[in-house]
Amino acid sequence: MNQLSPKLASELAANVYSLIDAEDADIFGNTYIEKYFAINSKGIGKTGGFIFNRQSGFAVMGLGKGQYLGDAIIAIRGTQLIADWGTNAQLGLSVGDGNQIVHAGFNNAFASLRQQIATFLDKWRISNPGKAIHFVGHSLGGALASLAADWASVN
């Protein structure tokens, strides 16, 4: 398995911040990223919890090229909008997919991504058995990337 370089991981995590609303956008016009991954730049997910609960460009998914051919990438942004602070402020605990105790806001935000990630990975796994899934994120996105990686490892 090819690991992401720190530069590539940070570029992916940083570029997701450019996608605010769940609209098509050319946020990954970064030639360094495009050398390694073809990104679907339609954002997925909701943020804000019970107060704001806003559809948001929260994560993107893509397929590897070159040395990452066949790999999948999921990049998740961190706190950017006022609604994201609603996610961060849900300080309670809940039970995550792996029966672990997790931050309630992070768990709720991941739940808004789960079905679209599952659909993407189900299709991807058919033609790419044994290939790697790379999860990257910054701040809130890092927490969600960890939850997504744990979930994907058993699903």
Rank of each mutant, 00 (worst) to 15 (best):
Q116G: 11
H103P: 01
Y32A: 05
D122Q: 15
N108W: 08
N107F: 00
I76V: 15
K131D: 07
F106I: 14
F120D: 09
K46H: 13
S18H: 12
T119P: 03
A89R: 14
D71W: 01
S112R: 02
A83L: 11
S5P: 06
H103I: 05
D21Q: 14
V102M: 11
T119A: 15
F52N: 08
S10E: 10
R114C: 06
G141M: 10
G49H: 05
G130M: 05
I82S: 13
G64V: 00
L140W: 08
V60D: 00
L113F: 09
A145I: 06
G29P: 00
S146Y: 10
L81M: 13
F52Y: 15
Y36K: 03
N53Y: 10
T87H: 11
R125F: 11
S41C: 14
S146R: 07
R114D: 01
G49W: 01
F106N: 07
D84F: 08
Q80F: 05
T47L: 04
F50H: 11
L93P: 03
I82N: 15
T87P: 07
D24G: 10
R114M: 06
I74V: 15
L140D: 08
Q100A: 10
K123M: 12
L121T: 11
D26L: 08
A25N: 10
G43L: 01
Q115E: 13
A109L: 08
F37V: 02
I74K: 00
Q90V: 10
G92P: 10
A22Y: 05
Q115N: 13
Q115A: 13
I82L: 15
Q115Y: 07
G142E: 09
P129D: 08
I39C: 01
S56R: 13
L147P: 04
V16L: 07
A13Y: 00
L91D: 09
F106K: 02
A59W: 02
L63V: 14
A109Q: 04
W124D: 03
D122F: 11
T47M: 04
G105K: 01
G130V: 09
I39H: 02
Y32N: 05
F52M: 10
A104D: 12
A118Y: 12
I117N: 00
E23R: 12
I44D: 00
L147H: 12
T119I: 14
G49R: 01
P129F: 08
G98Y: 06
D26H: 06
K35V: 02
I126A: 14
L121Q: 13
R114W: 03
I27H: 06
